[in-house]
């Protein structure tokens, strides 16, 4: 088939529209290398399709680029891990931490410790001392009570003996 026939077969349009099969794409790329006429026709068609798209263009609203730019900047910063630190600080820190990260697995943990104000130590000391006082008092009254019971028992025994002697 002659080049002109191939150009007029619709192969170029199929390729430029992006619906060519793998075989057709290979044929177009081969012909582009082999035939300057075919290459020129392809370039011209691509250019014309661009002009056609320009004819169908719709001007975007004025604020749209700012929106895109902000999004791109945000993505770039997120990807580079830049928050408020200069780049070289990240680089140094990264290289220092690299070995540590390779040796350890990061796990999420929860602390068992609690932090309280220093003033509470006087309260804890007072509670401790009062506890000791209450304990000593309780032991004292327990022994007193025990002694009183013993004396009472002795008195009862004596009274019984006196009663028995009187009879």
């Amino acid at each position: 088939m002659e080049i002109k026939e191939i150009i007029n077969s619709g192969l170029l349009e199929t390729y430029v529209m992006g619906v060519a099969t793998a075989e057709e794409t290979a044929q177009v790329l081969l012909l582009k290398k082999q035939s300057p006429e075919f290459g020129d026709a392809l370039d011209q068609l691509e250019y014309d399709m661009e002009l056609l798209a320009q004819g169908m263009a719709i001007e975007p609203p004025s604020g749209l680029f700012k929106k895109i730019e902000d999004e791109v900047n945000e993505i770039q910063l997120r990807e580079r891990g830049l928050t408020n630190r200069p780049y070289y600080e990240d680089f140094e820190k990264d290289s220092q931490d690299k070995n540590t990260r390779e040796r350890y697995i990061e796990v999420e943990s929860e602390s068992n410790q609690m932090r309280i104000h220093k003033a509470w130590r006087w309260v804890f000391a007072a509670v401790f001392i009062l506890g000791k006082i209450f304990l000593a008092t309780a032991i004292y009254f327990y022994l007193e009570s025990k002694q009183a019971k013993e004396q009472l028992e002795m008195l009862k025994t004596e009274m019984r003996q006196i009663k028995a002697e009187n009879r």
Binding site: N8, G10, L12, E13, D48, L52
Partner: peptide, 20 residues
């Protein structure tokens, strides 16, 4: 082939209208 030809004709028509 006919589909390809119709596609080529449609592109040609639009190119001509645009003066390309």
């Amino acid at each position: 082939d006919e589909i390809r030809n119709q596609l080529r004709l449609s592109v040609d028509k639009m190119r001509r209208v645009r003066g390309n």
